[in-house]
Design a binder for these strands. Structure first.
Length: 315
DNA sequence: GCATCACCTAGAGG
DNA sequence: ACCTCTAGGTGAT
């Protein structure tokens, strides 16, 4: 399967969208961005208004690609709705065309369970290891690729297999969560049809029925909802975003006597802080707060407007 | 409820 | 070659 997608008058930037930290399995090979989506190898190359697409499957049609890349999101309207201040205006002007990507919920959930307390380079390696060892093999244009393994597979392997993928203490979290997804104790795919509050309560196990997903806290839940469950108002808060907010949005918290922004410690976010920041920023940016988060996150990392002592290169 | 702290491990920096 | 520190946080106390 091979075709071109005409993007004239549709703002889209492939590189920004794939490198902003929301997806972990795309890599550049011979000028093409390559990954496996579901069970299909997909290669993408953008030249101005044209997106070249190649795939191992004939099911990878224009509709499929448009959905995955969220081409139908009204990006100009979204960006003007979140463009509320100078820092966002700068991020938008530098990253225009960055779109959220619609991932498979299970792969997204598993990825962000692995992502806790790791840098992006390490995350990519862990996920690559999981796919190599447990995924289905696909050959395309002389190269071998692997699918992301189904929850049933992850649930049933020996625990050491996951540990050997470099997951460390995350191995048991991932496997336990895989079991509960595989058994459909938690119907992950149905959460797309719940609202933000309900979906989050179910992911966090706050429904009172004891269906806990280990390794899933507020940050992981927000990432899964934003990147795979159509909750574009979700606003994940990690150390980068928190530092950016502390530096550029402290005025929003001036009247908050309970949670003075100046007292935030640099290396951790308490549950209370998470709720305070999340509520404030979701209200401030509105129904597309998740787009704002992604632009701020990528801009903060790329431009180093907030400092980290150890920043890994993105290669 | 709410704050503190340990946690697997790879990779960077000294 | 070593040591120290940190990473898209979460769970236990």
């Amino acid at each position: 399967m091979e075709f071109q997608l005409n993007l004239s008058k549709i703002p889209f930037n492939l590189e920004n969208s794939l490198e902003c930290g929301q997806v972990f399995r795309w890599k550049k090979e011979n000028g093409w961005w390559v990954s496996v989506i579901d069970d299909k190898v997909v290669k993408l190359k953008q030249k101005n208004n044209l997106l070249n697409v190649k795939s191992s499957s004939n099911d990878t049609n224009e509709k499929y690609i448009r959905k995955y890349l969220r081409i139908n999101d009204p990006l100009p309207d979204i960006l003007s709705s979140i463009n509320k201040d100078l820092i966002m205006a700068t991020a938008v002007s530098k990253l225009n065309g960055l779109r959220l990507i619609k991932q498979s919920p299970w792969e997204c959930l598993a990825s962000f369970i692995c992502a806790t307390y790791k840098n992006i380079v390490s995350i990519k390696k862990m996920i690559s290891n999981i796919c190599c060892r447990l995924g289905k093999r696909i050959e395309f244009e002389g190269m071998i690729y692997y699918t992301f393994p189904e929850p049933e597979i992850v649930a049933s392997v020996d625990k050491h297999t996951l540990e050997n993928c470099g997951l460390g203490y995350r191995a048991k979290f991932l496997q336990e969560t895989a079991k509960r997804i595989a058994s459909r104790e938690v119907a992950l795919d149905n959460l797309e049809y719940s609202n933000y509050e309900n979906a989050k309560a179910i992911l966090l196990g706050n429904t009172g029925d004891g269906k806990i997903l280990p390794g899933v806290g507020p940050k992981v839940a927000d990432c899964v909802m934003l990147f795979s469950l159509e909750k574009l108002d979700a606003f994940p808060i990690d150390v980068w975003i928190r530092r950016t907010i502390q530096k550029y949005y402290s005025h929003l918290f001036e009247n908050d006597t309970n949670h003075q922004i100046s007292s935030w410690k640099d290396n951790s976010i308490s549950a209370t802080e998470y709720k305070t920041i999340s509520k404030k920023m979701r209200r401030y940016f509105g129904s597309y707060a998740g787009y704002a988060q992604e632009y701020l996150f990528h801009y903060a990392r790329k431009s180093e407007i907030v400092s980290l002592t150890s920043v890994s290169s993105n290669s």
